[in-house]
Design a protein around this nucleic acid. Structure first.
Lengths: 190, 190
DNA sequence: GTCTATATGCGGATAGAC
DNA sequence: GTCTATCCGCATATAGAC
C-alpha cells in the first residue's frame, strides 16, 4: 500500500515491496505469483477494513447492501460520514486509492473491473435508498436519486484529491459535513 | 494527449508518441528534449484552450483572475458551468487530466508543482469572489467561502472521474447543473 | 531536422539450487 | 519457502551520420 501510494500501480516496483518486507523479489512472488495478484489482494484487504456502523456485522459487504433491501437514508448518510471521518486519518491509504482509481480508468488496467463494479454498487445502493424514501414519503420527490448518488460519490472522491494536494487548506471531515448538511435540507422532507 | 490519456504520464512511452506523429524517437526528442518537457508543454496548451466567457479576452489567464479584483459571483458560476459543459465533449482530454491530476500527487512528479499551483489559484479566486459578495451583501454571510470553493473544485473533478467510469449512467453536464442550482439557493441572498 | 545505431538501466518473471 | 542467477523486453536518452 505504501509503495502504491507513492508510485501508483504501473510505476511501482514489486522488487521494492519485496525489499520493504525483508524478502527478495522471487521470495515475494512465491506468495503473489504476479504483480496483478498483489494489487487485487491489496484492494480486497482495504475493503474488509473499512469501518462499519455499530449495528452492522463485520462481514457485511457492499454487495449485500446493493442486493438487499433498501437501507434507511439516515443510515446511508451516517455510513458515508463515518467512512469519510476515518479516511481523514489514513492519508497514505487514500492516496493509494485515489491514484489507483484514476489509473484504473485505462483500457487494460488490471483493477479496472474492480473499481467499475465497486462504484457501480455504491451508486446503486445509495439511489435505491433514496427511491425507497421517496415512495414512503420521507424524501423529497423532486430530487433525482441517481443524480444525488453520483453527487455524493463524486464529492467524496473529489474532496479526497483536493485534501491530499492541500492538506493545510482543505479539512476533509468538516468540509464534507458542511456539504452533507446542505444536501440534507434539499433531500429531506421536514 | 491521447497517449497520456490511455497510459498516464509515467507509464506512457514517448516512442509511441513519436510513432503516432510519424517520427522516430530521436526525431521527437529534437523538439522536446525530455519526456518532462513534453508533459509540461501539453499542460500549457490545454490551459490556453479552455473556453472563456464572451466578454473575456483570450489571453486572460487563471493567474490574472486570482491576482486581480474579485469577479462577480454570477460570473464565476457561469465560467465553471461553461468549462464543465465543454469538458463533456472531450472525454479523452479529461481522462488525461484526471489521470495526471492523481498521478502528480506523488512526491517527485514533474507536474506536481503545476497542479498544486493551479488548484491553489482556483480555490483562491473562487473564495475571493464569495468574500467580496459577502461584503457587498449579495452572498449569504453564513457560508464559508473557502469551504464552498473547495466543494466546487471537488465536485467538478469528482464528477469527471465518475463520468469517465460510467459514461452511460452519469451525465456530466446536467448533474453538475443540478448541484449548482442547489448550491445557489444556499449561497445567494434572495 | 531526421535518421540509424547504440548505451544503459530497470521492469517483471522464471529456472533451478538449497 | 527463500534464495542466486539469469532471461527478456522496454524505457529514456545520446552519438553521430546524412
Amino acid at each position: 500500500m505504501r509503495v502504491f501510494a507513492r508510485d501508483g500501480y504501473s510505476n511501482a516496483s514489486i522488487a521494492e515491496v519485496a525489499s520493504n518486507v525483508g524478502l527478495t523479489l522471487p521470495g515475494l512472488l512465491h506468495y503473489f505469483p504476479s504483480k496483478t495478484d498483489m494489487l487485487l489482494a491489496v484492494l480486497e484487504v482495504r475493503d474488509q477494513r473499512s469501518p462499519r456502523l455499530p449495528d452492522c456485522p463485520q462481514d457485511y459487504t457492499l454487495e449485500d447492501a446493493a442486493a438487499g433491501p433498501p437501507l434507511p437514508w439516515s443510515q446511508v448518510v451516517d455510513q458515508l460520514r463515518l467512512v469519510n471521518r476515518a479516511n481523514a486519518e489514513i492519508p497514505g491509504v487514500i492516496r493509494a486509492f485515489s491514484l489507483l482509481n484514476a489509473e484504473s480508468l485505462g483500457e487494460d488496467h488490471p483493477a479496472q473491473e474492480w473499481f467499475h463494479q465497486r462504484s457501480g454498487l455504491m451508486l446503486q445502493y445509495i439511489a435505491h435508498s433514496l427511491r425507497h424514501g421517496q415512495e414512503s414519503g420521507e424524501i423529497n420527490p423532486a430530487i433525482d436519486p441517481d443524480q444525488i448518488a453520483a453527487e455524493l460519490i463524486a464529492m467524496m472522491d473529489g474532496l479526497q484529491l483536493l485534501w491530499l494536494r492541500h492538506p493545510d487548506k482543505v479539512e476533509l471531515g468538516s468540509y464534507f459535513e458542511s456539504y452533507l448538511q446542505r444536501l440534507q435540507q434539499a433531500v429531506q422532507i421536514t
